[in-house]
Design a protein around this nucleic acid. Structure first.
Length: 460
DNA sequence: TTTGATT
């Protein structure tokens, strides 16, 4: 390195950053490579902070000092954004993690550069260390897997600094863990390879591997939980932006349904049948157990009676419901005067509400909450396309729905075809079971039953 | 096809 090319470079005019090419870094084989090879860094490389650098030294001057510990990937002297003045420190990344460790132990606080009165600082940059970028949250572990099993799983990706399985007070695993790697690269590699890659024995879904929440995200989560709790105590419309609108929509919707249900000869089941045809556009067939009224067409002929209509859920309640025009010109105009295609008996308030609803619900992630004992339903054999919104709408006629959740596979985002609905009282729950258990949708029949209490079927 | 999670 006697006559390094950089050594003769004039101090004037070098850019703020020095890209080290192979030829430049003097590996010795540079002459054999026709093109400049882009230096590669290890996935577990560490970015170092270098402090106590004399202002007179730029990248070229510093390079030889650090190169003796290994090949440099990037070396950048920090400069003031406005004035361009040397700030007396730099960031340094070696291609190999090992080089960084060697440089740190050899230089940090070990020697003082000319003109400085404090020793040089060489240590992992702040962004490397206390950032949460190398801590992973691991979900969907088997309940029997302990720290050792988790370590075995993550070991191939790097150095594990910390591994903790989350447990309940009684010591049973919660099926998740934290794994902290030595570097961000290792953590990323583990995410890439492991997330969704397998399903652990006893887990209900494929493995989840992601960055752990940052403090900010954690705070946010708390806030959301608080908001959810508040909502539970104030079921009436809140004077709070979207939340109020959401609740209002539900109440209006319910009122409309009640009105529909109270029509002559129409029970709640009929309302549901009409509603589901309206909202979900699945072809519904009332189960034999249900009153005949349930099987009758909705007023005006809903999508259920128009086979093959590709009605998009919740996009526009009217589109698919508009009576067939059969291509006759002018027939549309029958409905273009602001007149609803529905007979007066069908509440006009209904359609606008159901139209607005899905947007509201998707914008407002509702808190998943259990109702009191006896108020929570487990619903199976849901159509694949059913989402939370459809679930809510299906069970609203029976009472105040506290929460509705369709289970979704974390890896594929596909519905698992079952879900939960919670009411605020047991009577509503029972009514819903009576009306909806066995309800046929397409080829399936809904199974609606009380949710199993947590410690049921447990022999002492 | 069968029970809401997790920082």
């Amino acid at each position: 390195m006697a006559a390094a090319p950089g050594g003769s470079a004039p101090p004037a005019g070098p850019g703020p950053r020095l890209g080290f090419s192979t030829a430049d870094s003097g590996v010795g084989m540079s002459g054999l490579n026709p093109g400049p090879a882009v230096p590669m860094k290890d996935h577990d490389a560490i970015k170092l902070f270098v402090g106590q650098i004399p202002r007179g030294l730029d990248e070229q001057d510093l390079k030889p000092l650090f190169e003796e510990f290994g090949r440099i990937y990037e070396l950048t002297v920090l400069k003031d954004r406005l004035t361009g003045l040397h700030k007396g420190c730099a960031f340094l990344t070696y291609c190999a993690r090992d080089s960084a460790l060697k440089a740190q132990s050899a230089l940090h606080e070990q020697k003082t550069l000319p003109g400085m009165n404090r020793p040089i600082q060489v240590k992992p940059a702040a962004s490397e260390g206390r950032g949460e970028d190398r801590k992973l949250f691991v979900g969907m572990l088997g309940k029997q897997q302990g720290e050792e099993d988790v370590r075995r799983l993550f070991q191939p990706f790097g150095h594990i600094e910390e591994c903790t399985v989350l447990r309940s007070p009684d010591g049973t695993s919660k099926g998740c863990a934290f794994v902290k790697f030595g570097s961000q690269g290792e953590a990323q590699a583990a995410i890439q390879s492991l997330h969704g890659s397998r399903t652990m024995a006893g887990a209900s879904s494929s493995l989840v591997v992601k960055l752990a929440d940052t403090d900010r995200e954690r705070a946010l989560r708390r806030m959301q939980q608080m908001a959810g709790q508040l909502g539970a105590f104030h079921p009436a419309p809140l004077p709070l932006g979207a939340c109020g609108a959401y609740t209002t929509a539900i109440l209006q919707h319910q009122a409309a349904l009640l009105a529909a249900a109270q029509g002559p000869g129409l029970g709640p089941v009929a309302a549901v049948a009409a509603q589901m045809q309206h909202v979900a556009a699945f072809s519904l067939v009332a189960a034999p157990l249900l009153p005949a009224a349930a099987a009758s067409s909705p007023p005006g002929g809903g999508p259920g009676s128009l086979p093959g209509l590709p009605a998009p859920i919740g996009v526009n309640g009217f589109g698919p419901l508009t009576p067939q025009t059969n291509g006759q010109p002018g027939s549309d105009s029958l409905y273009n005067n602001g007149l609803s295609p529905y007979p007066a008996a069908y509440p006009s308030a209904y359609a606008p509400v159901s139209t607005a609803f899905p947007q509201q619900s998707s914008a407002l992630p509702q808190q998943q909450r259990e109702g009191p004992e006896g108020c929570n339903l487990f619903i199976y054999h849901l159509p694949q396309e059913f989402g939370d919104a459809e679930l809510i709408q299906t069970f609203l006629p029976f009472g105040a729905v506290v929460s509705a959740k369709v289970f979704v596979d974390r890896a594929t985002n596909q519905s698992k075809c079952f879900g939960f609905v919670s009411f605020d009282n047991p009577t509503s729950a029972q009514t819903a079971i009576q009306a909806m258990n066995g309800f046929q949708i397409g080829m399936k029949r809904l199974k609606v039953q009380l949710k199993r209490p947590k410690d049921a079927n447990r022999p002492y």
